[in-house]
Simulated scan of single mutants.
Amino acid sequence: MEPQHLRDLYDRQLRREARPDGPGCRVERVGPVVRQTGPAHAWNGVLWSGLDAPGADAAIDEQIAHYRAAGLSFEWKLYGHDGPADLADRLLAAGFTAEDPETLMAAEAAALPQDVPLPEGVELHAVTDEAGVRQVVEVHERAFGTESSHIGRQLLDRLAADPDTVTAVVAVASGEPVSAARLELCPGTDFAGLWGGGTVEAWRGRGLYRALVTHRARIAAARGHRYVQVDAADTSRPILQRLGFLTLSTTTPYTYTP
């Protein structure tokens, strides 16, 4: 499993050939850009671009005009291997704001450890209804300190429209949700995505993140996906490396608000 091979496969299946990730969303290829447009609470943005220096500024302006006309904020998901080399500077000059960079990592799902135990007294609950989604949002807001109602709406949309493409799980201790995570399945591809893994502060350092990663990887493998991928924050990257994940690239969200 070579990182270059995995990165190329990821770029082709999940970026250049991307499919809508929720109801009401559409994916379009406009020249050298692949973008998704949907409701305001959905993820809106540029998934892939094959730009060169002469055409980059015009392509950036075109995406700004598209989302501005729709009244939407959006994200340009920039990867470390995307061109041209100064694309990040061009995005900043056009009015985008850079968020924290993350590390794109992937692993063979079936090769990950199978015996990561949960802390004593903790149970995993599958999320199937609105009450479970509220717990996911609660954990996300407590773990990351951000308003996360849009994540709940996205998850409810997908559970209602196509539950086979998303799985969410909450770790509960004495009736309290203390950790949560999502698995997004991409039918017809080799990949499943690990998203939103977060643990409230009092429960960190007890192995919950590792347990949720391996739990979701088992589901992905059982559903026919060879690899799991994650955009890893600095805090989770060492844990994933110890589990056997490979680094494929970096990814930085550049956001634009009309």
Rank of each mutant, 00 (worst) to 15 (best):
D86I: 11
I239D: 01
L243A: 06
Y256R: 03
E138D: 15
W48C: 00
P3M: 08
G95C: 12
E120G: 12
D61V: 05
Q114G: 15
V230H: 01
E62K: 10
S148V: 11
G83K: 08
D115E: 13
Q229S: 14
A70F: 06
L78N: 01
R223P: 05
R12S: 14
V137D: 07
K77A: 02
A88C: 07
F245R: 02
Q36T: 11
A217H: 06
V213N: 00
E184A: 14
D61P: 00
G145A: 02
T199S: 10
P119I: 03
G244F: 03
G152P: 04
V172Q: 04
G196N: 07
A111I: 08
T103S: 10
R29A: 13
A111S: 13
I151P: 06
P253L: 02
P32V: 05
G45V: 09
A109S: 15
A160H: 15
P3Q: 11
A217V: 11
F74S: 07
V30T: 13
D115A: 12
E2A: 10
R26W: 14
P113V: 05
V27A: 04
L91Y: 02
E99K: 13
E28T: 15
A85Q: 11
L91N: 00
F245L: 09
K77D: 01
V116M: 04
T214R: 04
A69W: 06
D164N: 12
S148R: 14
P54A: 04
R223D: 10
V178F: 03
L92N: 05
G24L: 13
Q13H: 04
R226K: 15
I151S: 11
L248A: 03
A59R: 01
P117K: 03
V136S: 09
S149P: 08
E184D: 15
R35D: 00
A220S: 04
G197D: 13
E99M: 15
R216D: 08
G45C: 10
S149T: 14
L124Q: 06
V116C: 07
A160E: 15
R223N: 10
A160M: 10
G145V: 03
S249L: 05
A65R: 15
H81M: 06
D100A: 14
P101S: 02
L14I: 08
A131I: 14
I64L: 04
H81T: 09
A88D: 12
T235W: 11
G132L: 12
A131M: 12
R12T: 10
A107L: 02
A69G: 14
Y79T: 06
R223L: 02
R242C: 11
L104M: 01
P113Y: 02
P163S: 07
L194F: 05
R68I: 06
L92Y: 07
T257W: 04
D21F: 12
L183E: 04
A192N: 07
F144N: 09
G188T: 00
Q135K: 07
